[in-house]
Design a protein around this nucleic acid. Structure first.
Lengths: 138, 138
DNA sequence: TTGATATGTAACTGAATTGGTTACAAGATG
DNA sequence: CATCTTGTAACCAATTCAGTTACATATCAA
């Protein structure tokens, strides 16, 4: 299972985007997410490193660096999950076995296609889409 | 990162499929995968529970229950990774916050699409495709 | 029938990851 | 200056993972 950081990061960005005039403190965000403020600040740090938000030390509040429609869920995913490979592959299969010799190259190709499909779908959804669903009339 | 069981399971099935006349002992498979025989037997057990192979206690050898072209990588994935949800979502977001109140439903929908794309791509590839790539002339 | 060899599975281990927490330095602001 | 904030290191318990040991049980050939 992919960790909850992606979900929490999207939650945070949705909060920032939906309250542009507020200075959201990590305490407030934490109470919306239902976790510890340090967990929030940790993820805010990753989002900042990925240049998705700006914050200033000592001062409450965070601001998106781009409009919500230009922040895809894939960017968020990459920000908090920098690991490039989704699937692990076992190391050093036996090079003297006809299967072992080539399995990793074949697996890499097979897994890459699946991972690309996932990432494409994430890239096609933005924080704006999240906002639209959050606040749509129903 | 998704664990190596998927990769190892595909390796195992490719071995079984490519040597239909051999009685593959877990020791032999382990030496091709480069791991401990018990790790192999554990995964063989999951593949058996998922009805992808048949084995018999005390007797070396495993046989596919279907032709390699009918065993998709998605079935293998599900066999060794029974957890249904790929993305974790944080628990109990604040129901008094307009974002927290609905975020999980929105996240579920967003993540479900991405997961479905991944699974569809896995479902489109079979053990036969793996064999074809393993043994293609190049 | 007995001995060698195999599987099936429980149990334990160390490493890594995760999320929560405490602690604290340092910036912001009235 | 007093009080709030962020940023970050450090520690913790829980979980997952892969490797390993141990052993009951099944198979099979001599």
């Amino acid at each position: 299972m992919i960790n909850t950081r992606v979900a929490v990061a999207i939650h945070i960005l949705a909060l920032i985007a939906s309250k542009p005039h507020d200075d959201l403190a990590s305490d407030y965000i934490a109470s919306s997410v239902n976790t510890h403020p340090v967990v929030i600040r940790r993820i805010l740090g990753m989002l900042r490193k990925a240049d998705l938000i700006r914050t200033s030390a000592g001062k409450a509040g965070a601001a998106l660096t781009s409009p919500p429609s230009e922040i895809s869920l894939f960017l968020v995913y990459r920000a908090v999950e920098p690991d490039n490979e989704l699937f692990s592959v076992h190391e050093n299969p036996n090079p003297h076995c006809p299967v072992g010799k080539r399995i990793n190259a074949v697996l890499d190709e097979a897994f890459h296609g699946a991972q690309a499909a996932l990432e494409k779908k994430l890239a096609s959804q933005s924080i704006q889409d999240i906002l639209d669903h959050l606040f749509q009339k129903d």
